[in-house]
């Protein structure tokens, strides 16, 4: 495998391009995924298209040039319409990647996912498959305010028939995206916009990462921290800082939040006896509370203290820079919680 560093955005772009080369039924559909439809000066001399946007973040730049407007399809701003069309196309032979520009727009796109795509196979007695990848964007930190900054993967994760993956780094983003496209079910692929510029080692080759498997980022025996997406970096910072005090933290990147990897998390808790879950979602009815409830049920006897969750507060995402910073879980907040959990440990070891 070749070693090279690319950004999180490039990794996803590359995954989409490779899957589109491999499988002609893969299409990309969404608002301004190319941009500039029917603008003459964006047609090159050889008849190929340039894009005006390539997605609002520029993530899908170049795809329309290689694959044409028949496979990189700009839609009107009509989320219900094109998500319904993506479900219909998925049920009948295409393998669409449909982009929801911000996960906050799910209000207009939800029915095709919730009531149609997620349930068709079940309602049809197993006689349909819906190989649909929903690419969307979550997360606070960009000053994008209450309707462009939410973390809503947990909402999708509450729907039977939908898988939800949340990559935390460029390598995972590419491998999970290719796995999502290959999957014969509705897979929501939720990208944190604050990770777009993150660079990391990404092989050029086509590879997949198994959906539903967590990644043990670092091993430790004193405290388990389960983290999602951008929060994995927070977990690692906490592990570094506690490591200085001799506390060995195991960091688990959940990678998939539905179905999430119960086995890996429970095995870890059996070893450490302590669990913190970090999730940027609002604090109730989310992935962190789900992990906590399952661990409390299945590993209660192994716990040396209460399970702690560190989430965003139960508020909308504020706009002002200082309020937004206070909103997002960070290492200091996790450390305050961790101190309580490991106080006995530190007294004994230091």
């Amino acid at each position: 495998m070749t070693e090279r560093k690319v950004t999180f955005m490039t990794a996803i772009n590359e995954a989409m391009a490779q899957s589109m080369r491999k499988d002609e039924t893969v299409i990309l559909i969404g608002t301004d995924v190319a941009g500039g439809a029917e603008v003459d000066h964006l047609v090159q001399d050889d008849g190929r298209y340039d894009d005006a946007f390539g997605g609002v973040f520029g993530l899908s730049k170049g795809l329309v040039t290689e694959f044409g407007r028949e496979r990189v399809i700009d839609t009107p701003i009509a989320e219900h319409g094109y998500f319904s069309a993506a479900v219909g196309a998925a049920a009948t032979g295409l393998r669409p990647i449909a982009e929801l520009m911000f996960n906050d727009f799910v209000g207009f796109a939800l029915d095709p996912i919730l009531n149609q795509g997620a349930k068709m196979r079940y309602m049809f007695g197993g006689k349909a498959k819906i190989p649909l990848t929903v690419r969307t964007v979550h997360g606070a930190g960009a000053g994008a305010a209450a309707q462009h900054s939410q973390t809503l993967y947990g909402l999708f994760g509450a729907i039977p028939g939908v898988k939800v993956v949340v990559p935390s780094n460029p390598y995972d983003a590419k491998g999970l995206m290719l796995a999502a496209i290959e999957d014969d079910n509705v897979v929501v692929f939720s990208e944190d916009k604050m990770l777009y510029g993150m660079k990391g080692d990404v092989p050029e080759e086509y590879y997949t990462i198994e959906i539903g498997k967590a990644n043990v980022v670092r091993e430790g025996s004193d405290l388990t921290i389960v983290a999602i997406g951008k929060m994995v970096q927070v977990a690692e910072e906490v592990a570094d800082r506690l490591g200085g005090d001799g506390v060995k933290v195991e960091v688990i990147d959940l990678r998939t939040i539905s179905p999430w990897d119960q086995e890996t998390v429970i095995e870890s808790v059996k070893k450490t006896g302590r669990l913190i879950v970090i999730d940027e979602s609002n604090p109730h009815n989310n992935t962190a509370t789900d992990v906590a409830s399952v661990v409390a049920d299945k590993a209660f006897d192994y716990l040396d203290g209460p399970i702690k969750t560190v989430c965003a507060p139960n508020t909308p995402v504020p706009f002002a820079a200082n309020l937004e910073k206070a909103y997002i879980p960070d290492a200091d907040k996790v450390l305050r919680v961790a101190e309580e959990l490991i106080s006995d440990l530190k007294i004994g070891t230091i």
Binding site: T31, D32, G35, G36, A37, A52, F53, V56, D74
Partner: peptide, 11 residues
């Protein structure tokens, strides 16, 4: 224009 897409295309 709706964002980067001409109205004549989108409607």
């Amino acid at each position: 224009f709706g964002e980067g897409t001409p109205f004549r295309y989108a409607s």
